[in-house]
Design a protein around this nucleic acid. Structure first.
Ligand code: ZN
Ligand code: ZN
Ligand code: ZN
Ligand code: ZN
Lengths: 140, 140
DNA sequence: GCTTGCTCCTCCAGTGACTGGAGATGTTAC
DNA sequence: GTAACATCTCCAGTCACTGGAGGAGCAAGC
């Protein structure tokens, strides 16, 4: 009676229809029952699950990590150390990316203040052609 | 006489052989002449060009932007405003990504200090399930 | 001249996380 | 009945590579 179409859950979760089917294919969302006409019929709980996925994606978690988190969330009595570890690792990765990007920003700032008029003397092109003008190494 | 094999330029530029062929396919590197046995024979200038590409990639430039920069570098008499604009835009993108990641870091820090024992009360899972617990919106 | 081992060739599939489209049905409103 | 819309499956493309299969060139040792 309170069955939702894929369009409904897409609207309510903010996730596109194609992406919902993709998540089902990847095992993040259980395959729902179908109507007589082969349409997916969702439980309202699917919206909460999709919102969880969306929020985790916005925070940068990868799909395998989200699958782990969803599995852990299904065992309310179990200790949450595993979930906490996944979040801490994500935090560490975000911090590493911030450090790396901050180094890039410094290099780009140095080379972007170019007072030359011709490309022959351009600070940007010169710096790109010779990394020894840089302060440190760049790591990906 | 001073012709280099693809292995030579790979070693000297720090770019893998497959990637060099990929850059050739994408038009970043002109297709070099071939030997009688169909091997690519490179000019030493190819090494400089590849080093330029590598450095720009390390700084986060995309391949279309690098193609533009290489084209501009080939006109020494022209004004360098276009090259400077590409660098400034790259700087702006890096800064935007740093801002976005800093917001993510704050959210992750808030949710990662979880003192709960069971997943039922886990701060991580709770926060992921309800974005209204977050301070602000997340933009990609 | 033959084998061994290295380099190189082309082509193709896979990565992550989707996105968009084709072409075929199902459903709803008038 | 028919027009408009929603949904179905499947496939190709995105970005910047990476690695591998299967074949051929090339130098050295015997
Ligand atoms: Zn300049
Ligand atoms: Zn550098
Ligand atoms: Zn916890
Ligand atoms: Zn949030």
């Amino acid at each position: 009676m309170s069955d939702l179409t894929i369009g409904d859950v897409a609207r309510e979760s903010g996730i596109k229809i194609n992406t919902i089917r993709f998540y089902e294919d990847r095992g993040l969302l259980p395959a729902p029952p179908r109507s007589a006409g082969n349409r997916r019929l969702y439980d309202p709980a699917a919206v909460a699950r999709l919102r969880f996925i969306r929020h985790a994606r916005e925070l940068g978690f990868g799909l395998p990590a989200i699958a782990d988190l969803l599995r852990l969330a299904g065992h309310p009595e179990a200790p949450c150390a595993a979930a906490d570890a996944i979040a801490r690792q994500q935090l560490a990765e975000v911090e590493a990316r911030i450090r790396s990007l901050s180094a890039l920003r410094a290099e780009l700032q140095r080379m972007a203040d170019c007072g030359a008029g011709s490309t022959a003397d351009c600070h940007v092109l010169e710096s790109l052609g010779d990394h020894s003008l840089c302060a440190g190494p760049h790591e990906s």
